[in-house]
Design a protein around this nucleic acid. Structure first.
Lengths: 132, 132
DNA sequence: ATAAAAAGAGTAATTATTACTGTTTTGAAA
DNA sequence: TTTCAAAACAGTAATAATTACTCTTTTTAT
């Protein structure tokens, strides 16, 4: 099962790299289709899963029922706007010490943690203060 | 839209209260069906959503694609076993200071955070050390 | 008791995602 | 440079969790 090159996969990865908004599979599909008009949604899903499996991209499950994807695989946290659903990077230090804290009260093996923050993004706060 | 009593809802809540394993809608359905043989899955979903909306139970999205439900609404953290998928309570202090940390590097309003830990539960560790 | 609102049962529809099938592309070796 | 098996693709069908809809039953204020 050696990996073989595919233009579609390269295009998907290239697209993701340009984006900071953590697109869903469907958003990737709609955008990549502009350069590959008959790429299949299945191909998008397969390649996103493949890229995530080999660690070239990250799959984000932020609790909105849809998977988001991120070409930035450096450890970082995310904020999800409860209003508009946008997923925004947070530039804050890693909280790896949480694993130790959690390990102290658990008799299994803790390998990692997932944290995301929610609230209102600056855009939605702005809209709110204007009209409503 | 005043809330009216329903035996089905009471039964669902009562069942959840007895459980510490964070059942899914389907697990609730299968169990409640023993006392209400022709309760409908839709009724289970509707009531779980309703109870979560009024804050009587919590809906947990732990990233496995299925919603879990918890009658314990006190703030606490969860561990998810990567092996068997079980969701286990962690009795650790609340990490509310994380909100302040995150707020420092974000120009929107942060209302809360979701954190879960993953790894191997003691049961799966045990199995592993035996055979495999 | 009555009746409007709420809730239920049963079923259909939706949404995100995965699986399948037959065709095309890739790339290492002849 | 052809060859050919493995990998990837397009297109479509299937699955799984959840929500919506329709008509009937239950609840509860009057």
């Amino acid at each position: 099962m050696a990996l073989k090159y595919s233009r579609q996969r390269e295009t998907i990865k290239d697209f993701l790299v340009t984006r900071k908004d953590h697109p869903t599979a469907d958003m990737v599909y709609m955008n990549v289709r502009e350069s590959y008009p008959n790429i299949s949604l299945g191909t998008v899903y397969r390649n996103l899963t493949l890229l995530a499996d080999i660690g070239e991209i990250a799959r984000l499950r932020v609790g909105d029922g849809v998977d988001h994807f991120d070409a930035d695989i450096s450890p970082h946290y995310h904020f999800i706007c409860s209003e508009c659903g946008s997923v925004i990077d947070l530039d804050m230090d890693s909280l790896d010490h949480l694993i130790d804290t959690a390990s102290d009260c658990f008799n299994g093996q803790i390998d990692g943690h997932v944290t995301y923050f929610y609230g209102k993004c600056s855009n939605c706060l702005k809209k709110e203060s204007k009209g409503d």
